[in-house]
């Protein structure tokens, strides 16, 4: 999977790339409009992450150029502007998602994965982690072939974990993933805890190993025990 990160803030581009590379992506960066334009003309990418404000141009133009070249490339906008107009315009010209800065890398990663799944297999693909199988287009979860009845939020939580395997996830990022940016964190952390408790219980009941580890003071991690 090839991903292009168009972001002029060097540090941020680096962080995103590091995160993606760890997850097995081939990741390239472009810091300017010209560089990005050159790259999309030379290579094909599965997904492009675009910052809207670039020193020498506008992210929208890159998306437009990209959509002219290859329609199947997924586009995720990352922008400091939280304006409805920008979001609508982005969707109109063919972007798939919009993340407002500052965002969680784990959230970006989950969105990229979900996007690639939709793009490449029309969502008709299974996500497999050891004995756990998730079928996204029917929202079913199987453990050792047995269906597990998860609530909507538990399912979302599991999918978020599966998109970020072996990664420490903060409670805040989980809360925001489940309930959106406006959630009040004081209550939501307790809610995250109770959802994780339920999810773990349900998975264990079906005979899965205990993959969810809690990391003191930070959050949770989904990985091989």
């Amino acid at each position: 999977m090839k991903v292009l990160v168009v972001e002029d803030e060097q540090g941020l581009a680096e962080s995103i790339t590091d995160y993606m590379v760890k997850d097995g992506y081939v990741c390239e960066t472009a810091a300017t409009f010209r560089e990005a334009e050159e790259k999309i003309h030379l290579y094909t990418y599965d997904c492009v992450i675009v910052d809207l404000t670039l020193p020498d141009g506008n992210g929208f133009q890159i998306i437009e150029a990209l959509k002219r070249l290859l329609v199947t490339t997924g586009v995720i906008i990352i922008s400091a502007r939280d304006a409805l107009e920008d979001k609508l315009k982005g969707l109109e010209i063919g972007s798939d998602d919009y993340l407002t800065k500052p965002f969680h890398l784990s959230e970006l990663n989950a969105r990229v994965k979900s996007l690639l799944r939709r793009r490449q297999f029309g969502g008709h693909t299974e996500i497999r982690f050891q004995e756990i199988v998730v079928v996204p287009h029917t929202r079913n979860v199987f453990v050792n072939g047995q269906p597990a009845a998860l609530s909507r939020k538990e399912y979302d939580l599991l999918l978020y974990f599966l998109s970020n395997v072996d990664v420490a996830l903060t409670k805040a990022s989980i809360a925001e993933h489940l309930w959106g940016d406006n959630i009040d964190s004081a209550d939501s952390f307790d809610m995250v805890y109770s959802h994780i408790k339920n999810l773990r219980r349900k998975l264990l009941e079906k005979g899965a190993a205990d993959y969810i580890q809690s990391i003191y003071g930070i959050g949770y991690k989904f990985s091989q025990p």
């Binding site: 941020l12 962080s15 965002f103 969680h104 890398l105 420490a168 903060t170």
Partner: peptide
């Protein structure tokens, strides 16, 4: 965003 991303990497 950079601080957040770095912290996320740090953890």
């Amino acid at each position: 965003a950079l601080i957040n991303a770095t912290v996320e990497q740090l953890i």
